[in-house]
Amino acid sequence: MARYLLRRILLVVPVLWAVATLTFFLVRAAPGDPFSAEKSIPEESRAEIEAFYGLDQPLPVQYLRYLGNLLRLDPGYSYSHPGFTVGEIIRDHFPTTLAYAVPGFLFALFLGIGLGLLAALRRGGWGDFLASTLALAGICLPTFVIGPLLALLLGAWLGLLPTVGWSGGADFGAGFPPWAYAVLPALTLGFLYTAFVTRLTRSGLLEALGSDFVRTARAKGLGRPRILWRHALPVSLLPVVNFLGPALAGGLTGSFVIETLFHIPGLGQFFVDAAINRDYPLLLGLVVFYATLILLLNLLADLLQAVLNPRIREEMG
């Protein structure tokens, strides 16, 4: 187990290096530079700015410096947010993303597993109908469709929640507590995953309930609740855990969309803006940050899988 863990962690390093290198040269291969789109500035100021950001150095030197900065966890100053380092931007704005993303994911997990359980246990009943309807809705109503629709319904027509914005920002719909601003984004993000988790839990549980080890458990005379909770459910959650990896990558997409949609000052919006503004340090820093995050969470998902499934645990040795 420890060896497996070590190997997996060591694999993260070359992957991250590949990501960092690929991104660096991809961005640099592009025509244009960060200051060409702006109003023309005097030659001296331009040279000064380029010297400040190290853009006057030859490309290989810039590359090595960039790798060094990454190793020191400090990708440098952002161009488009002067005076802020990339580290500061991540520190200030990532919590905003987490503030709605974590509740959204948890909501999706709990509701999805609950609905999946209901659907599998009462197969063909209304719970099953609800689960399959939700799964279909999840497929055909992606984040940027369900988000505005929810905002229209809950925010504009029923007036329960603020339709856009984030607490601390300009307060259009005064009178809402700070947490209220996170509800719509969380619901929007969670919607798709609820559908997926429901579907996965349902099929996983149906398969587990029909398998040999459940029959054995029943033959041993175990009660239904114990079979369900101790034997069938953990194994049936494997596909759900398996799905967490792709789900996180998808959640990232979701966060870009949601932050654009609800005007939330989270990290996703910074990424999109950095890409549009060619803010190299911020862009590269965020790509590496996201890649690290996803790789580590994937690792966590794999470990969780080992905890749930004895067969995989043995394979890891």
Partner: peptide, 10 residues
């Protein structure tokens, strides 16, 4: 395991 959307955006 990579966030490929990032590359598409790039």
């Amino acid at each position: 395991s990579l966030p490929f959307l990032l590359f598409v955006i790039l």
